[in-house]
Design a protein around this nucleic acid. Structure first.
Length: 355
DNA sequence: AAGTCGGGGCG
DNA sequence: CGCCCAGACTT
């Protein structure tokens, strides 16, 4: 029916790499290989796999090992919970399942350290059961092949791709088909600069015919934590203090904080004093800096705020009130909504006011 | 749904 | 330096 499936399988049989775990049908060794290869490149995992199955050739031998020894075998590979979970699961199989590796998807999926992908991989590769694997390679291949533009790292995107993978999985050659799709992703359909001219199913590919290979798959924009340096001016005069209602289009809209000079890096009071904002607020006059706080760190979802509070004493008439700012009686300050950062600062520095 | 967990290879 | 890798688990 779908001729491209045969092309893909043919390509796989011809081009597949000779990897050590492809020469065994032992579910234990396939399990070991799949755990090692989680978030790990094949080339990095090969030596670890060979050493591991050499030292622990069976579930029983692994179950009898100490955690120190297993972790030592894992040293340098990372994600060490994988090794601890394997030991735990080996002992469970040994003690509760009579040392016999389980054979059904549901049983295997329930083992510690085995999720959807690994359970499908084991039952497919070891027992040729029709469960579709979905890993990074498979998601990339189907995203391009079918033009799926939903983020593959969202739960809805993964769910959709799993259904697609289930749908495309042939009933008979599931083991070969699963590995063929992954191998295509690993050798041809690369994240960057894929070798489309060598792809056996290029003529089927939506992304190729629409020149979208560079755009697919879509990933959620990684919210990298951006630092913001806030230099707050805590200006007091008599029983009053200047606060600012935060404007729209920025964090903490509608809450109150202080007049703020934001800088690209940690600012020193001396540098701030020569800034345009400072000179405008204080009308080019000298003011008395009472104190400069240490740096407060405040984490938001996508921001790391590094705040300093510069406490100043000034006469009201010497001040040019910045946009959105107002004098507030200190005794009323608890009536105003403030961000957590400001609340902490106030509680540490105006303790008498906050109870 | 987002955060956490390691380390290495590659452009 | 950022991205990505035969992901799973916790919060």
């Amino acid at each position: 029916m779908e001729n491209w499936v045969d092309k893909l399988l043919h390509w796989y049989e011809k081009e597949k790499r000779d990897l050590p775990w492809r020469n065994t049908g032992d579910p234990y060794k396939i399990w070991v290989s799949e755990i090692i290869l989680q978030q790990t490149r094949v080339n990095q995992g090969i030596d670890y796999y060979l050493r591991f199955v050499s030292k622990y050739p069976t579930v029983s031998s692994l179950a009898a090992a100490s955690e120190d020894d297993v972790l030592k075998m894992w040293q340098g590979l990372g994600y060490y919970s994988r090794a601890r979970n394997m030991l735990h699961t080996a002992r469970y199989i040994e003690e509760s399942l009579g040392g016999k590796f389980p054979r059904t998807y549901q049983q295997i999926r329930g083992l510690k350290g085995i999720g959807d992908y690994t359970a499908a991989a084991i039952v497919s590769f070891a027992f040729n059961q029709p469960y579709a694997v979905l890993d990074g390679n498979v998601m990339r291949v189907y995203s391009r092949l079918l033009g799926i533009d939903e983020p593959v790292d969202s739960s809805s995107g993964r769910k959709k791709l799993q259904l697609i993978a289930n749908d495309y999985l042939p009933e008979k050659n599931s083991a070969s088909y699963n590995q063929a799709v992954m191998e295509l992703g690993a050798l041809i359909c690369l994240p960057k600069k894929p070798f489309c001219t060598q792809c056996p199913i290029q003529d089927q590919c939506y992304a190729y015919s629409h020149t979208l290979t560079a755009k697919l798959p879509v990933k959620q924009v990684k919210k990298k934590i951006v630092k913001r340096f806030l230099n707050y001016l805590v200006i007091q005069s008599g029983d009053s203090i200047i606060m600012r209602k935060r404007p729209r289009g920025d964090i903490w809209q509608g809450l109150y904080d202080f007049p703020c000079i934001e800088t690209a890096a940690a600012g020193t009071p001396l540098a701030l004093a020569s800034s345009k904002e400072w000179r405008r607020i204080f009308r080019n006059r000298k003011v008395i800096v009472l104190s400069v706080s240490s740096e407060y760190r405040h984490v938001l979802t996508h921001r790391l705020l590094l705040a300093k509070f510069i406490s100043l004493k000034a006469g009201r008439k010497e001040i040019e009130l910045p946009e959105g700012c107002e004098w507030i009686k200190l005794r009323n300050i608890s009536d105003y909504p403030v961000p957590r950062l400001i609340d902490i600062y106030l509680s540490e520095n105006f303790l008498n006011l906050n109870n």
